[in-house]
Write a protein that binds this DNA or RNA. Structure first.
Lengths: 193, 193, 193, 193
DNA sequence: GATGAATGAGCATTCATTCAT
DNA sequence: TATGAATGAATGCTCATTCAT
């Protein structure tokens, strides 16, 4: 509801900043409101409750990941290139928004089972796009025909996720973007026929 | 301190059970005390605070993982076999203790930054053993000489971790042990020269 | 102020419905506004604040009770008949408006001391008419000359009130109107010389 | 639970004072705790929640009313005397505890439907004792055989209640105890054969 | 060593009221 | 007149930790 209004975006963006800077458990609604420049009560004109803010953060931000991958899927390029762009896109989006990287890799994982279950719903859409790339690649012979798709997807996502989490936990000290070709190479080696 | 006394172990084991059955946020100190059969105050004779209980859980349990891998390292077997045994050991220990699997893959990740940072300290010992296997394998020519060890380790651990987390989130419905040969095969394909 | 404008009545009537259907503590200004078909802010063009709405509800509705009793007082009938008509009128008005019965007997009593004190001001007018009937009856010898008027009035009103409250709390299951002759008989027995 | 411990009584007594002096809606848990000389959290060792404190206040205090009436019932005295003692006891207990009088006659009536429904459960016990006196009196011929017991009870209780409420709302200015013989006389006149 | 009663800081949410349009 | 988006004060309850016994 009211997701188009500017205040909706203001609050979502404020939430990312507050969570990144204070941690999940210190991200009080009043802090988010202050960061967004609105009154506490205004939050509740746009969100049902605090959990609704957090799931919205994830939904709004992950939407960009998925949208980009959808564009990649439609491009007339080979599987090798698609996987590179998916990895590069994933790295790039989090590299460009350091706050968001902290939130997705560390803070939002502290949420309770219900919230994480909602987050997983959102994540599934993204993972199913990855599955499509893998299935297409197997079909066309670009990837190993003996691959278990679920397992392959867990390797791709697990590697990406672990790489980014390590980068975040090392205070984003090194250049994440430089890693994408190597990560891609390693992954392709595992998946190739 | 006092880590040998039977009550220390009682409390650690009780913590695993209580966290697995109630979730991280519903694992109150009083519940752990009750499960351990001691008074609330007794907990504080053996642990500095609640965080100390949780990090102890991780330390005590991960010790078994590392001990097993140390044994593997000393065996006169090739890198391929070492990696298989590491993966199989990791899967096996969590397959055999469903409570522990829930705690390490889901619940303990809800803890705050400080606790997770302590957990990572413990994890590092385990990961450095993995690093040793990888380095030895590169040296002996069994693994690809161009490998970035950190990246390779992130792929191995990320894939293992993501696979187990998926299994736990699917309520441990399927047989995790059956996956270790396939996971091993996929990983070896990526690492081989 | 502005008590003649149609919206004033609209809002008062809406308040009775909203309070009866939702209870005193769930009768938010916004609900009353919605029921009345006006904007929240419009309420404040006709009423000083929320309390002013509630006291107005009582004032407007009790006015009918008092008007009817004034007509009864002017009639050329004996005290016995006057008291019967007062009781019967009281029962009848609440019997015919189930929402109003709930509001006066249950919901409005949950208001705070200040509001109830204002409500008592309104009630006093009604009770002074009852006092007049009693005084006239004593003077003419129809009622016991030793009666303490205040006490007699408390008995009459207390009995009426308790009877109606019981009826409302029993979900208005039985026929309230059938009780008025009996209540009248009992009261007259106490008041007669 | 723990109703015998001194702190239970301390808190109940503190609640009566705080509600009487501040009003129902201004009787915060923290105020009650302060008045009782305990920490806020201690309240919750003895009571489930705030509502539980309030219903306990009513239950504990009304118990005395009922106990006294039970003693009266067993005495070898006529119905006339029993009713006098019931009325006198009711007046007396509230006359002696001005705080309690304010709480029962004014403040507790502002509570919500659920609480009042619980209060009514407690009240029913008291009213059933009154019913017993009335039934016995009818049986023995001391009271009018044509009486409807429910109606008679509503008159007795309604008159008592209205008399005390008036006294409280007039700031307990006059001597309530002086009214009991008169109230008794008036009620008996109505009930006698 | 062991107990468990007592402590008290900390926070999401509601809703009467305002005021720019 | 009429609107309705925005405001912000106010509070019950939990639970890690302490300490007298």
């Amino acid at each position: 509801m009211k997701r188009d209004k500017p205040k909706y975006k203001q609050i979502v963006d404020a939430a990312v900043i507050v969570i990144a800077e204070n941690g999940y458990h210190q991200a009080q609604v009043s802090k988010i409101a202050k960061e967004a420049g609105v009154a506490d009560g205004t939050i509740y004109l746009y969100f049902k409750n605090k959990e609704d803010i957090l799931i919205s953060v994830f939904r709004e931000k992950m939407a960009v990941f998925a949208e980009n991958v959808e564009v990649i899927l439609e491009k007339n390029i080979d599987t090798n290139e698609k996987l590179f762009r998916l990895i590069d896109n994933h790295f790039s989006l989090l590299h460009e928004d350091r706050h968001l990287a902290i939130v997705t890799q560390l803070e939002l994982r502290q949420s309770n089972k219900e919230l994480r279950s909602l987050i997983n719903e959102v994540l599934k859409e993204y993972l199913s796009l990855l599955d499509r790339i893998l299935k297409d690649g197997i079909k066309s012979g670009e990837l190993n025909s003996e691959l278990d798709v679920r397992l392959a997807r867990q390797m791709v996502f697990g590697t990406i996720d672990e790489t980014i989490t390590s980068w975040v936990m090392n205070d984003q000290k090194y250049d994440l973007m430089k890693l994408s070709p190597e990560v891609h190479k390693l992954i392709m080696k595992a998946l190739r026929p």
